[in-house]
Design a protein around this nucleic acid. Structure first.
Lengths: 233, 233
DNA sequence: CCGTCAAGGTGGTCGGACCACTACGGCCGA
DNA sequence: TCGGCCGTAGTGGTCCGACCACCTTGACGG
Protein backbone atom coordinates (compact mmCIF):
# COMPACT_ATOMS: atom_id res chain seq x y z
CA UNK A 1 0.00 0.00 0.00
CA UNK A 2 2.14 2.79 -1.22
CA UNK A 3 0.49 5.95 0.02
CA UNK A 4 2.50 8.46 -1.92
CA UNK A 5 0.34 10.54 -4.25
CA UNK A 6 -3.25 11.71 -3.73
CA UNK A 7 -3.74 11.18 -7.47
CA UNK A 8 -5.57 14.44 -8.04
CA UNK A 9 -5.52 16.04 -11.43
CA UNK A 10 -3.15 15.16 -14.21
CA UNK A 11 0.40 14.11 -13.46
CA UNK A 12 1.67 17.12 -15.37
CA UNK A 13 -0.41 19.49 -13.27
CA UNK A 14 0.93 17.84 -10.15
CA UNK A 15 4.49 18.24 -11.40
CA UNK A 16 3.87 21.94 -12.03
CA UNK A 17 2.58 22.42 -8.50
CA UNK A 18 5.48 20.50 -7.00
CA UNK A 19 8.13 22.52 -8.79
CA UNK A 20 6.31 25.72 -7.84
CA UNK A 21 6.26 24.52 -4.26
CA UNK A 22 9.97 23.78 -4.38
CA UNK A 23 10.59 27.38 -5.33
CA UNK A 24 8.06 28.86 -2.90
CA UNK A 25 9.62 26.88 -0.05
CA UNK A 26 13.05 28.14 -0.96
CA UNK A 27 14.38 24.72 -1.90
CA UNK A 28 15.17 26.23 -5.28
CA UNK A 29 16.78 29.64 -5.31
CA UNK A 30 16.41 32.19 -8.12
CA UNK A 31 19.02 31.59 -10.79
CA UNK A 32 19.69 28.08 -9.56
CA UNK A 33 20.02 25.21 -11.98
CA UNK A 34 17.51 22.37 -11.81
CA UNK A 35 18.28 18.67 -12.27
CA UNK A 36 17.96 17.45 -15.84
CA UNK A 37 14.57 16.73 -17.33
CA UNK A 38 15.36 13.04 -17.16
CA UNK A 39 16.35 13.16 -13.50
CA UNK A 40 13.36 15.28 -12.53
CA UNK A 41 11.05 12.86 -14.28
CA UNK A 42 12.50 9.99 -12.28
CA UNK A 43 12.33 11.93 -9.02
CA UNK A 44 8.65 12.74 -9.44
CA UNK A 45 7.90 9.32 -10.86
CA UNK A 46 6.57 10.49 -14.21
CA UNK A 47 7.66 10.20 -17.80
CA UNK A 48 9.97 12.69 -19.45
CA UNK A 49 7.17 13.77 -21.80
CA UNK A 50 4.94 14.82 -18.93
CA UNK A 51 7.85 16.49 -17.18
CA UNK A 52 8.63 18.44 -20.31
CA UNK A 53 5.08 19.74 -20.46
CA UNK A 54 5.34 20.88 -16.85
CA UNK A 55 8.63 22.63 -17.56
CA UNK A 56 7.23 24.24 -20.68
CA UNK A 57 4.27 25.53 -18.67
CA UNK A 58 6.51 27.09 -16.03
CA UNK A 59 8.70 28.50 -18.79
CA UNK A 60 5.88 30.45 -20.40
CA UNK A 61 4.89 31.70 -16.95
CA UNK A 62 8.37 33.19 -16.60
CA UNK A 63 9.28 31.01 -13.64
CA UNK A 64 11.79 28.75 -15.38
CA UNK A 65 14.20 29.33 -18.22
CA UNK A 66 15.47 26.50 -20.43
CA UNK A 67 18.84 26.88 -22.14
CA UNK A 68 19.37 24.42 -24.93
CA UNK A 69 22.39 22.23 -24.25
CA UNK A 70 22.97 23.73 -20.84
CA UNK A 71 20.11 23.07 -18.46
CA UNK A 72 17.01 24.49 -16.83
CA UNK A 73 17.27 27.43 -14.49
CA UNK A 74 14.98 29.31 -12.13
CA UNK A 75 14.57 32.90 -13.27
CA UNK A 76 15.40 35.79 -10.97
CA UNK A 77 11.65 35.85 -10.18
CA UNK A 78 11.64 39.59 -10.69
CA UNK A 79 8.62 41.57 -11.76
CA UNK A 80 9.71 41.64 -15.37
CA UNK A 81 10.13 37.88 -15.55
CA UNK A 82 6.80 36.95 -14.02
CA UNK A 83 4.61 39.69 -15.48
CA UNK A 84 5.67 39.20 -19.07
CA UNK A 85 2.61 37.03 -19.63
CA UNK A 86 0.45 39.99 -18.69
CA UNK A 87 0.80 41.15 -22.27
CA UNK A 88 -1.16 38.12 -23.44
CA UNK A 89 -4.19 39.45 -21.61
CA UNK A 90 -3.97 42.77 -23.40
CA UNK A 91 -3.41 41.06 -26.73
CA UNK A 92 -6.39 38.72 -26.52
CA UNK A 93 -8.92 40.92 -24.74
CA UNK A 94 -11.61 42.53 -26.81
CA UNK A 95 -14.74 44.57 -26.49
CA UNK A 96 -15.65 45.83 -23.04
CA UNK A 97 -12.60 44.19 -21.52
CA UNK A 98 -10.42 46.63 -23.47
CA UNK A 99 -12.12 49.55 -21.78
CA UNK A 100 -11.65 47.90 -18.42
CA UNK A 101 -7.96 47.40 -19.14
CA UNK A 102 -7.61 51.05 -20.09
CA UNK A 103 -9.36 52.01 -16.88
CA UNK A 104 -6.86 49.97 -14.88
CA UNK A 105 -4.06 51.56 -16.84
CA UNK A 106 -5.45 55.01 -16.16
CA UNK A 107 -5.47 54.35 -12.44
CA UNK A 108 -1.95 52.94 -12.36
CA UNK A 109 -0.45 55.30 -14.90
CA UNK A 110 -1.74 58.39 -13.13
CA UNK A 111 -0.35 57.21 -9.82
CA UNK A 112 2.95 56.21 -11.38
CA UNK A 113 3.25 59.60 -13.04
CA UNK A 114 2.51 61.34 -9.75
CA UNK A 115 5.19 59.29 -8.01
CA UNK A 116 7.61 60.03 -10.82
CA UNK A 117 7.02 63.77 -10.43
CA UNK A 118 8.30 63.52 -6.87
CA UNK A 119 11.19 61.15 -7.48
CA UNK A 120 12.47 61.56 -11.01
CA UNK A 121 16.18 62.30 -11.40
CA UNK A 122 17.59 64.81 -13.87
CA UNK A 123 18.99 61.97 -15.98
CA UNK A 124 15.65 60.24 -16.16
CA UNK A 125 13.91 63.51 -16.92
CA UNK A 126 16.31 64.12 -19.79
CA UNK A 127 15.47 60.70 -21.18
CA UNK A 128 11.76 61.45 -20.99
CA UNK A 129 12.35 64.75 -22.76
CA UNK A 130 14.31 63.00 -25.48
CA UNK A 131 11.37 60.81 -26.40
CA UNK A 132 8.98 63.75 -26.18
CA UNK A 133 11.03 65.68 -28.72
CA UNK A 134 11.58 62.68 -30.95
CA UNK A 135 7.86 62.04 -30.97
CA UNK A 136 7.17 65.58 -32.11
CA UNK A 137 9.87 65.52 -34.76
CA UNK A 138 8.47 62.76 -36.94
CA UNK A 139 5.30 61.89 -38.76
CA UNK A 140 5.91 58.16 -39.05
CA UNK A 141 3.15 56.50 -37.00
CA UNK A 142 5.40 53.57 -36.17
CA UNK A 143 8.10 55.81 -34.80
CA UNK A 144 5.62 57.94 -32.90
CA UNK A 145 4.19 54.85 -31.25
CA UNK A 146 7.64 53.63 -30.29
CA UNK A 147 8.59 56.91 -28.65
CA UNK A 148 5.17 57.16 -27.04
CA UNK A 149 5.72 53.77 -25.41
CA UNK A 150 9.24 54.74 -24.34
CA UNK A 151 7.98 58.04 -22.94
CA UNK A 152 5.59 56.31 -20.59
CA UNK A 153 8.03 53.52 -19.86
CA UNK A 154 10.65 55.95 -18.62
CA UNK A 155 8.11 57.65 -16.40
CA UNK A 156 6.94 54.33 -14.98
CA UNK A 157 10.54 53.39 -14.26
CA UNK A 158 11.09 56.69 -12.48
CA UNK A 159 8.19 55.91 -10.16
CA UNK A 160 10.44 53.41 -8.43
CA UNK A 161 8.05 50.45 -8.37
CA UNK A 162 9.31 47.79 -10.76
CA UNK A 163 6.20 45.68 -10.30
CA UNK A 164 3.91 48.51 -11.29
CA UNK A 165 6.15 49.34 -14.22
CA UNK A 166 6.00 45.73 -15.41
CA UNK A 167 2.21 45.69 -15.23
CA UNK A 168 2.00 48.96 -17.13
CA UNK A 169 4.36 47.52 -19.70
CA UNK A 170 1.94 44.67 -20.23
CA UNK A 171 -1.02 47.03 -20.41
CA UNK A 172 0.76 49.00 -23.11
CA UNK A 173 1.98 46.03 -25.10
CA UNK A 174 2.78 46.78 -28.67
CA UNK A 175 -0.06 44.90 -30.31
CA UNK A 176 -2.57 46.22 -27.80
CA UNK A 177 -1.73 49.85 -28.43
CA UNK A 178 -1.41 49.29 -32.15
CA UNK A 179 -4.95 47.98 -32.27
CA UNK A 180 -6.44 50.85 -30.31
CA UNK A 181 -4.25 53.61 -31.67
CA UNK A 182 -4.85 52.69 -35.25
CA UNK A 183 -8.37 54.01 -35.01
CA UNK A 184 -7.64 56.70 -32.47
CA UNK A 185 -5.02 58.51 -34.46
CA UNK A 186 -7.04 58.28 -37.63
CA UNK A 187 -9.27 60.89 -36.11
CA UNK A 188 -6.43 63.37 -36.03
CA UNK A 189 -5.61 62.91 -32.40
CA UNK A 190 -1.90 63.47 -33.00
CA UNK A 191 -1.96 67.08 -31.93
CA UNK A 192 -4.02 66.38 -28.86
CA UNK A 193 -1.67 63.60 -27.84
CA UNK A 194 1.31 65.90 -28.23
CA UNK A 195 -0.32 68.53 -26.06
CA UNK A 196 -1.14 65.99 -23.38
CA UNK A 197 2.38 64.63 -23.37
CA UNK A 198 3.72 68.13 -23.07
CA UNK A 199 1.46 68.73 -20.08
CA UNK A 200 2.74 65.58 -18.39
CA UNK A 201 6.30 66.65 -19.06
CA UNK A 202 5.69 70.11 -17.62
CA UNK A 203 4.26 68.60 -14.45
CA UNK A 204 7.35 66.42 -14.09
CA UNK A 205 9.65 69.40 -14.55
CA UNK A 206 7.68 71.33 -11.95
CA UNK A 207 7.84 68.32 -9.65
CA UNK A 208 4.12 68.69 -9.15
CA UNK A 209 2.61 65.26 -8.34
CA UNK A 210 -0.99 66.41 -8.40
CA UNK A 211 -0.63 68.07 -11.76
CA UNK A 212 1.16 65.00 -13.05
CA UNK A 213 -1.60 62.71 -11.80
CA UNK A 214 -4.27 64.85 -13.44
CA UNK A 215 -2.41 65.13 -16.73
CA UNK A 216 -1.75 61.41 -16.96
CA UNK A 217 -5.32 60.50 -16.00
CA UNK A 218 -6.67 62.87 -18.62
CA UNK A 219 -4.27 61.47 -21.21
CA UNK A 220 -5.32 57.86 -20.77
CA UNK A 221 -8.89 58.91 -20.12
CA UNK A 222 -9.12 60.49 -23.55
CA UNK A 223 -8.33 57.21 -25.23
CA UNK A 224 -10.59 55.38 -22.83
CA UNK A 225 -13.55 57.61 -23.64
CA UNK A 226 -12.89 57.38 -27.34
CA UNK A 227 -12.84 53.59 -27.17
CA UNK A 228 -15.95 53.57 -25.03
CA UNK A 229 -17.75 55.60 -27.65
CA UNK A 230 -16.48 53.32 -30.41
CA UNK A 231 -17.97 50.31 -28.68
CA UNK A 232 -21.20 52.13 -28.06
CA UNK A 233 -21.06 51.65 -24.32
CA UNK B 1 12.33 25.65 -52.40
CA UNK B 2 9.59 25.49 -49.82
CA UNK B 3 9.52 28.90 -48.21
CA UNK B 4 7.14 28.13 -45.38
CA UNK B 5 8.69 28.70 -41.98
CA UNK B 6 11.26 31.34 -40.94
CA UNK B 7 12.67 28.73 -38.51
CA UNK B 8 12.99 31.11 -35.59
CA UNK B 9 12.84 29.75 -32.10
CA UNK B 10 11.64 26.31 -31.11
CA UNK B 11 8.81 24.65 -32.99
CA UNK B 12 6.74 24.62 -29.82
CA UNK B 13 7.16 28.35 -29.35
CA UNK B 14 6.13 28.89 -32.94
CA UNK B 15 3.05 26.73 -32.43
CA UNK B 16 2.10 28.79 -29.38
CA UNK B 17 2.37 32.00 -31.35
CA UNK B 18 0.38 30.62 -34.24
CA UNK B 19 -2.51 29.47 -32.08
CA UNK B 20 -2.47 32.81 -30.25
CA UNK B 21 -2.55 34.55 -33.62
CA UNK B 22 -5.47 32.40 -34.73
CA UNK B 23 -7.43 33.63 -31.74
CA UNK B 24 -6.31 37.25 -32.00
CA UNK B 25 -7.31 37.32 -35.66
CA UNK B 26 -10.73 35.96 -34.81
CA UNK B 27 -10.22 32.70 -36.68
CA UNK B 28 -10.98 30.98 -33.40
CA UNK B 29 -13.89 32.30 -31.39
CA UNK B 30 -14.16 32.06 -27.60
CA UNK B 31 -15.71 28.78 -26.57
CA UNK B 32 -14.97 27.22 -29.94
CA UNK B 33 -13.58 23.73 -30.20
CA UNK B 34 -10.16 23.25 -31.77
CA UNK B 35 -9.14 20.39 -34.04
CA UNK B 36 -7.67 17.40 -32.27
CA UNK B 37 -4.10 17.44 -31.07
CA UNK B 38 -3.22 15.01 -33.83
CA UNK B 39 -4.82 17.12 -36.54
CA UNK B 40 -3.29 20.35 -35.26
CA UNK B 41 0.12 18.73 -35.21
CA UNK B 42 -0.27 17.73 -38.85
CA UNK B 43 -1.58 21.17 -39.85
CA UNK B 44 1.39 22.96 -38.33
CA UNK B 45 3.80 20.29 -39.48
CA UNK B 46 5.08 19.31 -36.04
CA UNK B 47 4.87 16.24 -33.84
CA UNK B 48 2.08 15.62 -31.43
CA UNK B 49 4.50 15.91 -28.51
CA UNK B 50 5.49 19.43 -29.45
CA UNK B 51 1.88 20.35 -30.11
CA UNK B 52 0.91 19.05 -26.69
CA UNK B 53 3.52 21.27 -25.06
CA UNK B 54 2.13 24.26 -26.92
CA UNK B 55 -1.40 23.41 -25.84
CA UNK B 56 -0.30 22.87 -22.27
CA UNK B 57 1.38 26.28 -22.28
CA UNK B 58 -1.76 28.01 -23.53
CA UNK B 59 -3.79 26.05 -21.02
CA UNK B 60 -1.86 27.35 -18.02
CA UNK B 61 -2.17 30.85 -19.48
CA UNK B 62 -5.93 30.46 -19.37
CA UNK B 63 -6.34 30.76 -23.13
CA UNK B 64 -7.26 27.15 -23.86
CA UNK B 65 -9.10 24.53 -21.88
CA UNK B 66 -8.58 20.79 -22.44
CA UNK B 67 -11.40 18.43 -21.59
CA UNK B 68 -10.31 14.82 -21.32
CA UNK B 69 -12.14 12.67 -23.83
CA UNK B 70 -13.94 15.59 -25.41
CA UNK B 71 -11.56 18.04 -27.02
CA UNK B 72 -9.72 21.33 -26.66
CA UNK B 73 -11.67 24.57 -26.40
CA UNK B 74 -10.90 28.26 -26.40
CA UNK B 75 -11.90 29.81 -23.09
CA UNK B 76 -14.31 32.73 -22.94
CA UNK B 77 -11.20 34.93 -22.77
CA UNK B 78 -12.72 36.80 -19.87
CA UNK B 79 -10.72 38.56 -17.19
CA UNK B 80 -11.03 35.69 -14.78
CA UNK B 81 -9.72 33.17 -17.28
CA UNK B 82 -6.67 35.10 -18.38
CA UNK B 83 -5.67 36.71 -15.08
CA UNK B 84 -5.69 33.52 -13.05
CA UNK B 85 -1.96 33.24 -13.56
CA UNK B 86 -1.55 36.54 -11.79
CA UNK B 87 -1.70 34.62 -8.54
CA UNK B 88 1.56 32.91 -9.41
CA UNK B 89 3.31 36.25 -9.26
CA UNK B 90 1.99 36.91 -5.79
CA UNK B 91 2.87 33.41 -4.65
CA UNK B 92 6.47 33.47 -5.84
CA UNK B 93 7.41 37.07 -5.16
CA UNK B 94 9.45 37.83 -2.10
CA UNK B 95 11.25 40.60 -0.34
CA UNK B 96 10.87 44.09 -1.79
CA UNK B 97 8.61 42.80 -4.55
CA UNK B 98 5.99 41.96 -1.93
CA UNK B 99 5.89 45.58 -0.82
CA UNK B 100 5.57 46.68 -4.43
CA UNK B 101 2.69 44.28 -4.94
CA UNK B 102 0.94 45.63 -1.86
CA UNK B 103 1.47 49.14 -3.16
CA UNK B 104 -0.22 48.20 -6.43
CA UNK B 105 -3.00 46.58 -4.48
CA UNK B 106 -3.41 49.69 -2.35
CA UNK B 107 -3.81 51.83 -5.45
CA UNK B 108 -6.30 49.52 -7.13
CA UNK B 109 -8.18 48.53 -4.00
CA UNK B 110 -8.72 52.13 -2.92
CA UNK B 111 -10.04 53.07 -6.33
CA UNK B 112 -12.22 49.98 -6.51
CA UNK B 113 -13.67 50.72 -3.09
CA UNK B 114 -14.38 54.30 -4.12
CA UNK B 115 -16.16 53.11 -7.24
CA UNK B 116 -18.09 50.59 -5.19
CA UNK B 117 -19.29 53.30 -2.82
CA UNK B 118 -20.95 55.02 -5.75
CA UNK B 119 -22.37 51.97 -7.47
CA UNK B 120 -23.00 49.23 -4.94
CA UNK B 121 -26.52 47.77 -4.85
CA UNK B 122 -28.41 46.95 -1.66
CA UNK B 123 -27.99 43.25 -2.34
CA UNK B 124 -24.27 43.56 -2.76
CA UNK B 125 -24.02 45.71 0.32
CA UNK B 126 -25.86 43.08 2.31
CA UNK B 127 -23.38 40.49 1.12
CA UNK B 128 -20.48 42.69 2.22
CA UNK B 129 -22.12 43.17 5.59
CA UNK B 130 -22.59 39.43 5.97
CA UNK B 131 -18.85 38.82 5.68
CA UNK B 132 -18.09 41.73 7.98
CA UNK B 133 -20.26 40.26 10.71
CA UNK B 134 -19.01 36.72 10.16
CA UNK B 135 -15.47 37.98 10.42
CA UNK B 136 -16.22 39.58 13.77
CA UNK B 137 -18.08 36.57 15.11
CA UNK B 138 -15.23 34.07 15.04
CA UNK B 139 -11.71 33.71 16.35
CA UNK B 140 -10.55 31.05 13.92
CA UNK B 141 -7.80 32.68 11.84
CA UNK B 142 -8.63 30.54 8.85
CA UNK B 143 -12.25 31.60 8.89
CA UNK B 144 -11.36 35.22 9.44
CA UNK B 145 -9.04 35.14 6.46
CA UNK B 146 -11.72 33.56 4.29
CA UNK B 147 -14.29 36.21 5.17
CA UNK B 148 -11.68 38.93 4.83
CA UNK B 149 -10.99 37.80 1.28
CA UNK B 150 -14.71 37.55 0.51
CA UNK B 151 -15.31 41.01 1.99
CA UNK B 152 -12.88 42.62 -0.40
CA UNK B 153 -13.93 40.40 -3.29
CA UNK B 154 -17.54 41.54 -3.00
CA UNK B 155 -16.46 45.15 -2.94
CA UNK B 156 -14.24 44.67 -5.98
CA UNK B 157 -17.12 43.03 -7.81
CA UNK B 158 -19.38 45.94 -6.93
CA UNK B 159 -16.93 48.34 -8.56
CA UNK B 160 -18.13 47.06 -11.91
CA UNK B 161 -14.75 46.38 -13.51
CA UNK B 162 -14.24 42.63 -13.86
CA UNK B 163 -10.67 43.08 -15.04
CA UNK B 164 -9.71 45.08 -11.98
CA UNK B 165 -11.51 42.58 -9.76
CA UNK B 166 -9.57 39.72 -11.33
CA UNK B 167 -6.26 41.48 -10.77
CA UNK B 168 -7.14 42.20 -7.16
CA UNK B 169 -8.13 38.58 -6.76
CA UNK B 170 -4.64 37.58 -7.85
CA UNK B 171 -3.04 40.15 -5.58
CA UNK B 172 -4.96 38.70 -2.65
CA UNK B 173 -4.37 35.07 -3.49
CA UNK B 174 -4.73 32.74 -0.58
CA UNK B 175 -1.10 31.77 -0.16
CA UNK B 176 0.06 35.36 -0.58
CA UNK B 177 -2.15 36.69 2.16
CA UNK B 178 -1.49 33.70 4.36
CA UNK B 179 2.22 34.41 4.24
CA UNK B 180 1.90 38.07 5.08
CA UNK B 181 -0.98 37.80 7.51
CA UNK B 182 0.62 35.10 9.55
CA UNK B 183 3.09 37.58 10.92
CA UNK B 184 0.79 40.57 10.81
CA UNK B 185 -1.94 39.12 12.95
CA UNK B 186 0.54 37.71 15.41
CA UNK B 187 1.05 41.26 16.52
CA UNK B 188 -2.56 41.51 17.60
CA UNK B 189 -3.73 43.39 14.57
CA UNK B 190 -7.11 41.70 14.66
CA UNK B 191 -8.84 44.55 16.38
CA UNK B 192 -7.29 47.14 14.11
CA UNK B 193 -8.33 45.17 11.05
CA UNK B 194 -11.89 44.96 12.32
CA UNK B 195 -12.03 48.70 12.90
CA UNK B 196 -10.68 49.38 9.41
CA UNK B 197 -13.18 47.04 7.81
CA UNK B 198 -15.95 48.74 9.73
CA UNK B 199 -14.77 52.10 8.44
CA UNK B 200 -14.83 50.83 4.86
CA UNK B 201 -18.30 49.46 5.40
CA UNK B 202 -19.55 52.75 6.85
CA UNK B 203 -18.22 54.62 3.83
CA UNK B 204 -20.04 52.23 1.51
CA UNK B 205 -23.30 52.66 3.43
CA UNK B 206 -22.89 56.44 3.27
CA UNK B 207 -22.15 56.15 -0.45
CA UNK B 208 -19.12 58.34 0.15
CA UNK B 209 -16.44 57.52 -2.47
CA UNK B 210 -13.77 59.74 -0.97
CA UNK B 211 -14.17 58.28 2.49
CA UNK B 212 -14.18 54.80 0.98
CA UNK B 213 -10.98 55.51 -0.94
CA UNK B 214 -9.27 56.82 2.17
CA UNK B 215 -10.40 53.95 4.35
CA UNK B 216 -9.32 51.31 1.84
CA UNK B 217 -5.97 52.99 1.23
CA UNK B 218 -5.32 53.19 4.95
CA UNK B 219 -6.33 49.56 5.39
CA UNK B 220 -3.92 48.19 2.82
CA UNK B 221 -1.36 50.81 3.74
CA UNK B 222 -1.21 49.51 7.29
CA UNK B 223 -0.15 46.09 6.11
CA UNK B 224 2.19 47.65 3.60
CA UNK B 225 3.96 49.70 6.23
CA UNK B 226 4.19 46.75 8.58
CA UNK B 227 5.76 44.61 5.87
CA UNK B 228 8.12 47.40 4.92
CA UNK B 229 9.29 47.61 8.50
CA UNK B 230 9.68 43.84 8.67
CA UNK B 231 11.97 43.89 5.67
CA UNK B 232 13.93 46.79 7.09
CA UNK B 233 13.31 48.97 4.08
C1' DC C 1 -40.37 6.31 -25.26
C1' DC C 2 -36.38 5.95 -22.48
C1' DG C 3 -32.59 3.86 -20.20
C1' DT C 4 -28.51 0.74 -21.24
C1' DC C 5 -24.38 -0.22 -23.10
C1' DA C 6 -20.99 -0.83 -26.60
C1' DA C 7 -17.78 1.44 -29.82
C1' DG C 8 -15.24 5.09 -31.55
C1' DG C 9 -12.84 9.27 -30.76
C1' DT C 10 -10.38 12.35 -27.69
C1' DG C 11 -6.94 13.93 -24.47
C1' DG C 12 -3.34 11.83 -21.05
C1' DT C 13 0.73 9.09 -20.31
C1' DC C 14 4.57 6.47 -21.36
C1' DG C 15 9.17 4.86 -23.30
C1' DG C 16 12.60 5.17 -26.52
C1' DA C 17 15.21 7.05 -30.22
C1' DC C 18 17.65 10.63 -32.48
C1' DC C 19 19.03 15.57 -33.30
C1' DA C 20 21.04 20.31 -32.00
C1' DC C 21 23.48 22.70 -29.03
C1' DT C 22 26.53 23.76 -25.04
C1' DA C 23 30.15 23.18 -21.89
C1' DC C 24 34.28 21.18 -20.52
C1' DG C 25 38.77 19.41 -20.79
C1' DG C 26 42.53 17.47 -23.15
C1' DC C 27 45.37 18.00 -27.07
C1' DC C 28 48.32 20.32 -30.21
C1' DG C 29 50.91 24.03 -31.96
C1' DA C 30 53.12 28.43 -31.18
C1' DT D 1 54.46 27.56 -20.79
C1' DC D 2 50.54 29.43 -22.88
C1' DG D 3 46.58 29.82 -25.85
C1' DG D 4 43.42 28.37 -29.09
C1' DC D 5 41.40 24.30 -31.34
C1' DC D 6 38.56 20.38 -31.23
C1' DG D 7 36.39 16.22 -29.65
C1' DT D 8 33.30 14.37 -26.43
C1' DA D 9 29.90 13.90 -22.96
C1' DG D 10 25.73 15.75 -21.46
C1' DT D 11 21.79 18.70 -21.98
C1' DG D 12 17.39 20.30 -23.90
C1' DG D 13 14.52 19.81 -28.45
C1' DT D 14 11.96 16.89 -31.49
C1' DC D 15 9.79 12.99 -33.18
C1' DC D 16 7.45 8.47 -33.18
C1' DG D 17 4.32 4.80 -31.81
C1' DA D 18 1.85 2.60 -28.42
C1' DC D 19 -1.43 2.26 -24.80
C1' DC D 20 -4.65 4.07 -21.20
C1' DA D 21 -8.66 6.82 -19.26
C1' DC D 22 -12.47 9.29 -20.27
C1' DC D 23 -16.35 11.27 -22.86
C1' DT D 24 -19.68 11.22 -26.53
C1' DT D 25 -22.65 9.14 -29.50
C1' DG D 26 -25.99 6.18 -31.23
C1' DA D 27 -27.84 1.69 -31.76
C1' DC D 28 -30.23 -1.55 -29.18
C1' DG D 29 -33.64 -3.62 -26.21
C1' DG D 30 -36.82 -3.06 -22.59
Amino acid sequence: MDETAPQKGTVTQRAIEQIKAFIAEGRLEPGERLPTERDLAVQLGISRSSMREAIRALTVLGVLEARHGSGIYVTQLEAGDLLETFGVVADLSRGPALVELLQVRRILESTATALAAARITPDQLAEVEKHLLAMNATDDPEEILAHDLAFHREIAAAAGNDTMAAILEGLSSRTFRARVWRGYQEEGAFERTRREHAAIHRALVSRDPEAARAAAAAHVGEVEEWLRAQLGV
